[in-house]
Amino acid sequence: MGTNDNLKSLPLEDLHKAANARFGGFAGWSMPITYPLGVMKEHLHTREKAGLFDISHMQLFDVTGPGASTLLSRACPLDADSLQTGQSKYTFFLNEQAGILDDLIITRLGDDHFMVVANAGNAVSDEAHLREVAKGFDCKIDALDRVFLAIQGPQAADVLRKGGIAGTELAFMHGFEPKPGWFMSRSGYTGEDGFEIGLPADEARKLVAKLFADERVAWVGLAARDSLRLEAGLCLHGHDITPEIDPVDAGLTWTIAKPVREKAGFIGAKALLAKIAKGPGRKRVGLKPDSRQPVRSDSILVDTNGNTVGVVTSGGFGPSAGYPVAMGYVGKDFAPIGTQVFADVRGTRIALHVHSLPFTPHRYHKG
Rank of each mutant, 00 (worst) to 15 (best):
R282F: 11
K270G: 00
V248S: 02
D249T: 12
W219D: 11
A277M: 07
G279L: 01
K270I: 08
P280G: 06
G268E: 15
K258W: 03
A250F: 06
L234P: 11
S291R: 11
L287I: 03
R229E: 12
P280F: 05
D214G: 13
R284N: 13
H237I: 15
G268K: 01
G268T: 02
D246F: 04
K258I: 00
V260H: 00
P289I: 07
A213C: 00
V248E: 07
K275Q: 09
V285L: 11
H239W: 14
T255Y: 13
K258E: 13
H239M: 08
G221L: 05
A271V: 10
R216M: 12
A223I: 00
G251L: 04
G233H: 14
D240V: 08
S227D: 06
R229H: 11
G265Q: 06
G265H: 12
L228W: 10
I245R: 05
R261P: 04
D240T: 07
G251S: 09
D214H: 13
T242G: 06
L234S: 07
E231A: 12
I276K: 01
L236S: 01
G286L: 08
S291Y: 07
L272Y: 02
V285K: 14
R282I: 06
G251P: 09
V217P: 04
F266R: 11
K263M: 00
P259H: 09
E244W: 01
H239N: 15
I267E: 11
A271K: 03
A264E: 04
T242K: 12
E244N: 14
G286N: 02
A271N: 07
G281M: 04
V220T: 09
V260R: 01
R261K: 06
T253H: 02
L228P: 06
A223M: 03
A250N: 06
A250M: 13
S227Q: 14
L234W: 13
T253W: 05
L234T: 08
I267M: 00
G265S: 09
H237V: 10
R282C: 08
S291C: 06
I245S: 00
A224L: 02
C235L: 13
V285W: 07
H237T: 10
G281P: 01
E215P: 13
R216D: 14
I267D: 04
D214N: 15
D246P: 08
A213Q: 10
